[in-house]
């Protein structure tokens, strides 16, 4: 396979990243090399190896259901590029 521009557009869309037309060529070139290389993994015979999702042989890590005071709202909102009435503000979202 090769990373053509159409594929890059689709992946960029899924990643929510805008790519300018004049950047597209460059990205497609990079991605073609990178993905082309990564794809060699398809040819490896992994037999019946199970996917390794965690390296730690640990399970059942829990916390108790004990509520604590929440964080100061001002501190949470401080970094927001736009805020109003204690809320984070975004351009109007029309329900899909």
């Amino acid at each position: 396979m090769s990373a053509d521009k159409k594929l890059i557009r689709r992946i960029a869309d899924l990643s929510n990243i805008h790519i300018d037309d004049d950047e597209l060529e460059g990205f497609a070139g990079d991605m073609d090399a990178i993905i082309g290389y990564m794809e060699q993994i398809k040819n490896i015979d992994t037999g019946d190896a199970k996917p390794m999702e965690h390296v730690l042989p640990v399970h059942n890590v829990f916390r108790d259901d004990i509520p604590e005071d929440s964080f100061e709202r001002e501190k949470l909102i401080e970094n927001a590029p736009s805020a109003e009435d204690g809320c984070f503000k975004v351009p109007a979202v029309v329900e899909q």
């Binding site: 829990f62 916390r63 108790d64 259901d65 964080f71 949470l76 009435d85």
Partner: peptide, 26 residues
């Protein structure tokens, strides 16, 4: 509750925060 007053860095997904599962929920 007033908006965003039952929040913390974890449920707000601030960079670097991590989840720990509530046993009772399970």
């Amino acid at each position: 509750g007033e908006p965003n007053t039952r929040c913390c860095p974890v449920c707000l997904g601030l960079p670097g925060t991590l989840p720990v599962l509530n046993r009772h929920a399970l």
